[in-house]
Amino acid sequence: MRTVPLRPAITLTTVLCLLTGVAYPGLVTVVAQLLFPFQANGSLLSVNGEVRGSALIGQRFTEDWYFHSRPASAGGYDGMTSGGSNKGPSDRALADTVASAVAAVVRVEGGTAGAVPSDMVTRSASGLDPHISPANAALQVARVSRARGISRDDLRQLVARHTELRQLGVFGEPRVHVLRLNLALDSAAARRVR
């Protein structure tokens, strides 16, 4: 009587498990750590030896003297969770959240209802979006300028310096890196005190 091919199935599972589950990721890890250690370990940004975050992961900013990230998802910019709101287009709670976010932009930033950039009042897909749109940053300049006593023109220049253009001129969208911008603000302020 013939039996099912258990032996080849089990040995091949074992062999492929070692090859694809151990050797392949192991090789990628070793080469990645050798060639690109900064990226492989999370593109960490340190100030005076202390890790202040990752260049890729957004942070939550609430103070007036910082540019703010996009509205936080349930995870609240905690790096151990990720995901969006998953609220659908006909969801009343989502519409209410958007409406109150628009109202807050009008009140805090002096924006105009109907002209609020779409990324400013919506939650991202990862909940960790490190970027905001240039229009979003431009709207925040007045508030940060008041809180820091830096002229709006100086701030606009700083924002422009931390605006990333389309990659290779084509891919993605223009965007402002919030954490790098705020780090630059802090170090500019520190220079002034000195």
Partner: peptide, 18 residues
């Protein structure tokens, strides 16, 4: 400068087209 459209659940670096 503004991604526009429906940005709920989308990342700024990708925007609407990507």
């Amino acid at each position: 400068t503004n991604p526009g459209g429906n940005m709920e659940g989308k990342e700024v670096r990708f925007g609407i087209p990507s």
